[in-house]
């Protein structure tokens, strides 16, 4: 009972704070929209996708990748923000509570995943309304599942890094060395079927690629590079590993 209430408390806090920061919700949507509108239209005007993708415009093609992008940015920074809790004593207030570190970790993950899911939902609505993305009941359900797995993984990754970091100075480095590689090497902006071997290897090593691959398949009906079963297996594995790493980081977290 105690631990469940604690879990609810941590989720409640994140959710309330998220709802109070409407400006953050809006600004987190601006970047993905700019990618879709400017990059999608601009590049889409001069290239045509080959190899079984001929019926799809470039803007729609990158839409699944942009969904993953919003997950990457919002979730990783959500996790990193635990450093701000350290700077004030709010984290101590949580750590002195008679709750297990695992509970605290899962409370945070739930909070972060909820925030991310709301942003994704907004982007789905925008996609259906303005970018003529053809969502169906099936593709919606599958999208949510894929996005949830990715959200949990990336929030956990952010929390793990945040738990081990002691000051926000490294934030810029994280963007450069974690978010950008994960995003650009995910095939979010290009087809992954016929890549040069070296790039193909990097893309295949990046768990985010499997989310992009799965989403492209369920939303646009593009044939999957790795196979849906493989995509889900990798995403499940990634989430599990990140949860284990995050729990471990939380247990040894100092402040």
């Amino acid at each position: 009972m105690g631990e469940l209430n604690g879990l609810y408390a941590l989720w409640y806090r994140e959710f309330k704070v998220f709802l109070r920061e409407r400006s953050r919700i809006i600004s987190s949507l601006i970047q993905p929209i700019m990618w879709l509108v400017i990059f999608g239209t601009g590049l889409g005007a001069s290239i045509s996708l080959g190899g079984g993708l001929s019926g799809i415009n470039y803007q729609a093609f990158i839409y699944p990748g942009i969904l993953c992008m919003i997950v990457l940015f919002s979730s990783l920074f959500f996790g990193l923000y635990i450093i701000m809790d350290k700077r004030v004593d709010f984290l101590k207030e949580v750590l002195v509570a008679p709750l297990g570190r695992t509970t605290i970790f899962f409370g945070k993950v739930l909070g972060g995943a909820t925030d991310g899911l709301i942003q994704v939902a907004l982007l789905i609505a925008l996609g259906a309304a303005f970018f003529s993305i053809p969502f169906t009941a099936y593709s919606l359900v599958m999208t949510i599942i894929v996005v949830m797995l990715l959200l949990i993984s990336i929030v956990s990754l952010g929390l793990a890094i945040g738990a081990l970091m002691s000051s926000p100075e490294g934030f810029g480095l994280i963007t450069g060395f974690v978010i950008f590689p994960l995003f650009f090497l995910s095939g979010a902006l290009f087809p992954t079927k016929s890549l040069p071997a070296w790039l193909g290897t990097f893309v295949a090593l990046n768990p985010v690629s499997y989310a992009v691959d799965a989403l492209r398949n369920v939303i646009l009906g593009v044939s999957s590079t790795y196979g849906l079963a493989m995509d889900f297996a990798v995403l499940f594995g990634f989430a599990l590993i990140m949860i284990i790493v995050g729990t471990w980081a939380f247990r040894r977290m100092k402040f």
Binding site: R13, K16, V17, R20, E21, V88, D89, F90, K92, E93, V96
Partner: peptide
């Protein structure tokens, strides 16, 4: 129970 020396509540709540 612990009342900390430094601020320890969430400002947005």
């Amino acid at each position: 129970g612990f009342v900390f020396q430094d601020p320890s509540s969430d400002d947005l709540l």
